[in-house]
Write a protein that binds this DNA or RNA. Structure first.
Lengths: 234, 234
DNA sequence: CGAACCATTGACCATGATCAATGATTGTGG
DNA sequence: CCACAATCATTGATCATGGTCAATGGTTCG
């Protein structure tokens, strides 16, 4: 993550630092968003559509949102999954280049883009947070390129499971709030391949599947080796 | 592209606009870079390595640079290709998450990151340009995800050729400053598949290959249909 | 209970990876 | 300048992975 240090009041501009929690005492998206009212979305409701000129910044308070594009041949590509705590919408240009849709029940707060951007001039912390969020997003997207490209189905699945695991606090149990179709569209596979490889992971005692949308990691090391592409004989 | 309008001197903060050329009269990366001396790199020389804490922003004046990662199993994934006019390094965090290497002879100018970032506070145009560059990069990365994932080799190749074409002024002739290995590592294919599909495109009179690193587009419409995934019977 | 939807499993096939051989191009030293 | 090596590209043969088509099983909801 890229962010500029902002020890308010100091003149010295420190080199870039990891700033998970934005600096106190300055306006940030978080503070501006926290003042907004909570909205609820049903599954399949959209935050915005590809081609819209949506003028809002959103923070997801709970639930899961998918960003996707419809390709010219009609196929759907899920670009990114956004979890509770994630901010989105800050990167949209004049026109949204993808659609955002609630996967589960979602609660979120939103903020008018212009009112936020108008403060960029006076609130250096806002610009820094925005840069930080964007470079984090860029890093995510590039990681996804590396994972998705040139990897077998089982490696993609392993990486996907680990990502969900990481986002859910690494408890060993992973909720899968997505359908197999969603997973397939995210990983660039078919539902059959997703299903077959989940079965394969279960058969090899790497995971358990107590419920259809719940997964228990049995052999974390092996899963990580798979995701890293270090398993030769698979 | 996301960028904030900045008609300097006006108080009104206009809604977001496409700003290809940054506003005049304010410091931008471009102006700051133009004052820097020209450096030359031989092919295979690195700008920075994965894991480095490189503290520079670069603008490529001529030549081609590849950003890549080495995966844990030793495979190389080319994340992005950067052409003349492109700026890079502004997105690096404490630690570079990929390596940057000259593919061809490269000339570039570089700028110390800290000296640039120190001015973010006083130069709103700089922050805007940086946001603009980052969101452009993010858009590029997401497009690449859509292209690379769930596409046949020939679709990937068609998209790749069109991207080169677009970056080179759409003259109908495309220079391919990369080896087949580079193309393969970028598209997540093997060199054999790249070679075979180039041959296939040539056999179907969609392209000509007068030289190994030069390509002429014969049937642009067909190439675009392929890249868009609209050809059923291929 | 039945319908609709989703997930799993199987059979078959197409695409692309792998292994291997041959050409083409470039660069080096005699 | 040529011979040779080294590197890169092309082409072929074979095989494995994943896509497609189809049938079955499970879950949810009216």
């Amino acid at each position: 993550m890229l962010a500029l240090a902002a020890d308010s009041g100091q003149d010295y501009q420190a080199p870039i630092q990891i700033v998970r929690d934005p600096p106190k005492g300055l306006k940030t998206f978080d503070e501006m968003l926290s003042g907004q009212s909570l909205r609820r979305l049903e599954p399949h409701q959209h935050l915005f559509h590809q081609g819209d000129s949506d003028r809002n910044i959103y923070r997801i308070e709970s639930g899961l949102v998918r960003l996707y594009r419809i390709l010219s041949d009609g196929r759907r590509q899920i670009i990114s999954l956004r979890f509770a705590g994630d901010i989105l919408g800050f990167e949209t240009a004049l026109e949204c280049h993808c659609s955002a849709e609630a996967v589960t029940h979602v609660t979120l707060r939103s903020l008018d883009q212009n009112s936020a951007y108008r403060r960029l001039r006076d609130e250096p912390a806002l610009a820094r947070q925005m840069l930080s969020l964007l470079s984090q997003e860029l890093e995510n997207a590039r990681s996804q390129i590396a994972v998705l490209n040139r990897r077998s189905a089982i490696e993609k699945l392993a990486a996907f499971i680990l990502e969900l695991h990481r986002r859910q606090g690494e408890s060993g149990t992973v909720d899968i709030p997505l359908s197999r179709t969603d997973i397939a569209d995210f990983l660039g596979l078919t539902i059959e391949t997703v299903s077959r490889n989940l079965t394969k992971l279960r058969a090899r005692r790497i995971i358990e599947l107590p419920q259809i949308q719940r997964l228990v990691i049995v052999d974390l090391d092996c899963l990580e080796a798979l995701a890293g592409g270090e398993c030769e004989d698979w």
